[in-house]
């Protein structure tokens, strides 16, 4: 059997020959310099930077105009639905906790705050969020992933109604924008972790969702998403279809004398409780929460093997565990890295 190495070697030899051919064919082209080709910059010259219109500077206003909204609705109802169904097969729980609000004539905007395992989360969430909020949903998406190329940025803005946020910089500017959008009556999907989970356990929540909620008075809905990490987790090259589950929690609002940090902790533990609810049941989760014996959402602070080991145990009880893989007796150590 030919090894992969052999094939790579062959490919490289082939590339070498192709390179030689191109070199000889392209020889007459050499005399076509500037202006046929792009100019090179003389030494010591500082070319002024063109204002970067990608990443967090990407302008998304156009995506909320009527025509774009219509296109988005069609996309969400068609291709996105199909894609979600094929890849993620989501089951949605806990919608009854939002039922009262969704039955109102004018449903108040909400901030959805799920835990974050995969880029798929956004797609799954858009489908899972009830129609009352879906139409006006704005997604806070990583500027450096969803907005790094023009086609991606356009797609993200148009299809997902995404708004770029810079994960590195402090987001005063984006916070103002979000406030404005919420004031406009739009709902927001924001991942309080600020990034996807590297190992399956959640990362500590950042205060963004809590801050916005406290500032605007809009309720935060804690959400737990399960299974997306196994389908298209961090470091995976292509998705492996499987099952997912989305559990909505009851909307939370900030107490009068509560600071953002404590409010944030409350949101984090609410999501943790939903996680527990997902692997056991509502009652166990409630009891564990009340006795304070619930697992932290971000996992135990122990050696990394134990974190993974515990996760394996949990995974088995999760929906993704139902993706039968009988040949494997090994502990599930998270998504395969290659």
């Amino acid at each position: 059997m030919r090894s992969k190495r052999h094939i790579t070697k062959r490919a490289q030899q082939f590339a070498g020959r192709a390179e030689q051919t191109i070199r000889s064919v392209a020889k007459p082209l050499a005399k076509y310099g500037f202006p046929w080709r792009a100019p090179t910059v003389p030494r010591g010259i500082e070319v002024p930077e063109k204002p970067d219109t990608l990443g967090s500077n990407f302008e998304t206003d156009w995506a909320r105009r009527p025509l774009a909204s219509v296109a988005r609705s069609a996309f969400i109802a068609g291709p996105l639905k199909l894609m979600t169904a094929v890849i993620a097969r989501p089951e949605v729980h806990g919608l009854d906790r939002l039922a009262d609000l969704s039955r109102l004539d004018d449903s108040p905007p909400l901030i959805f705050a799920p835990d974050h395992h995969s880029h798929l989360d956004t797609i799954v969430m858009i489908r899972a969020i009830p129609p009352a909020w879906r139409q006006d949903l704005v997604v806070a998406a990583a500027a450096d992933y969803f907005f790094d190329k023009r086609w991606k940025a356009t797609f993200s803005a148009l299809a997902l109604n995404a708004i770029p946020i810079d994960r590195e910089a402090t987001g005063r500017q984006s916070a103002d924008l979000f406030k404005e959008l919420i004031d406009d009556g739009r709902s927001l999907l924001i991942y309080p972790e600020g990034g996807r989970s590297p190992d399956g356990w959640a990362q500590p929540f950042k205060g963004g969702a809590a801050y916005l909620s406290a500032k605007t008075g809009v309720a935060v809905v804690p959400v737990h998403i399960e299974g997306t990490g196994a389908i298209f987790g961090k470091g995976m090259k292509r998705p492996r279809p499987g099952r997912t589950r989305v559990i909505f929690g009851a909307p939370l609002t900030s107490f009068e004398d509560e600071n953002t940090r404590r409010y944030n902790a409350r949101i984090e533990s609410a999501v943790g409780r939903l996680t527990e609810e997902s692997v056991s049941d509502y009652w166990t989760a409630a009891r564990k929460a009340s006795t304070g014996s619930a697992d932290r959402l971000s996992g135990p602070e122990t050696a990394s093997w134990r974190r993974k080991w515990m996760l394996t145990d949990r995974r088995r009880r999760e929906v993704s565990g139902r993706n039968s893989r009988p040949e494997r007796d090994w502990p599930n150590l998270g998504p395969r890295s290659r």
């Binding site: 490919a11 590339a15 192709a18 390179e19 191109i22 392209a26 082209l29 080709r37 450096d144 590195e168």
Partner: peptide, 25 residues
């Protein structure tokens, strides 16, 4: 890698652009 190698013959800039090297977080 292959595309960058072939492009490197005619245009170093295009080669650098297609090569799998990116500034990212």
């Amino acid at each position: 890698f292959g595309a960058a190698r072939l492009l490197s013959v005619t245009s170093p800039k295009a080669s650098a652009r297609i090569a799998p090297v990116h500034l990212r977080n």
